[in-house]
Amino acid sequence: MTEKKFDIDNLAKLARINLSDSEKSKLEGHLGQILEYVELLSQIDTSDVKPTSHVLPLRNVCREDKVTPKDDTVNYLELAPQKDKGHYEVPQIIS
């Protein structure tokens, strides 16, 4: 394996996923293997190549600014694991 480039704890933090120790060690192995393979791309000189983020020429799509009478608040809120008085409920943010 090439020199380790990633800090699994930091990546877990960025991804907002709690990982157990066994998950971390398994992921470290797989990630190391995948990144070693991805090194293949460094063989290609891309200094004059423009990046493609999207294959179609995307344009901004605007619709007419019309008020629609639809209010689905109740239906959407129904899906929430926890709600209270017409709002989403989450654990304490500032302790």
Binding site: L11, A15, R16, I17, N18, V90, P91, I93
Partner: peptide
């Protein structure tokens, strides 16, 4: 707290392959 709720939800809710790809993407 809120952050623990996020991270535990995602740990328990996602399977191995999804976690692997999210972490690789991150």
């Amino acid at each position: 707290d809120l952050n623990k709720m996020y991270t535990n939800t995602r740990q328990e809710g996602f399977g191995d392959e999804v976690k692997r790809r999210i972490i690789l993407g991150a």
